[in-house]
Amino acid sequence: MNPAARSQANRALALRLLGGVAAAFAFGFLLVPLYDVICEATGLNGKTRGAAVAMADTRVDTSRKVQVEFISTTMPGMPWEFSAGEPRVSVHPGEITTVHFRVRNMTASTITGQAIPSVSPGKAASHLQKLDCFCFKQQTLAPGEVRDMPVSFIVDARLPDDVSALTLSYSFFAVDAAPGDAGRS
């Protein structure tokens, strides 16, 4: 091969490989929505659906009872007091249940927070249907304000038989500050 033809061939191959690099970079970003889609479709990682669901199946399975336990956490940088009205309830699958959570803004300034739900075990996540939840929107509390917030949910009757207890956890994050700012001095 003469030098000119070879350098032409080298350049062409290098450009094709550069295209491969660009494709791999794009693939990295494509993994972000892909990850969410997979988690949501399968209920992996305890991700529950973000919005209220319409009640499809209202049959109540009175033959079994399921324990639903609540965990309430505030993340670092979130000066709220956050607690569940009752630590656990016992429900029949299919039954509509409403529980309350209480938050109190302990500072002298107005703060907006967002609660992020998570359900474990992960395979139960898609069976916990929330009809109404304070986590569907951001909560803004005036200084010292106390708020009782309801969550209405159904554990649907198709919950696998081997699940007798599930945990619904809420973590309250402050939304005003960018996450990185919280721990930085």
Binding site: V32, A174, G180
Partner: peptide, 26 residues
């Protein structure tokens, strides 16, 4: 390597530009 570049770029924008790739609150 481009996937790593993507991931650390997301981390950088999470830290400084208000994105929420890895931030549960968002």
């Amino acid at each position: 390597i481009p996937v790593l570049a993507g991931a650390i770029t997301m981390l950088l924008t999470d830290r400084h530009f208000g994105t929420h790739f890895f931030d549960a609150a968002g």
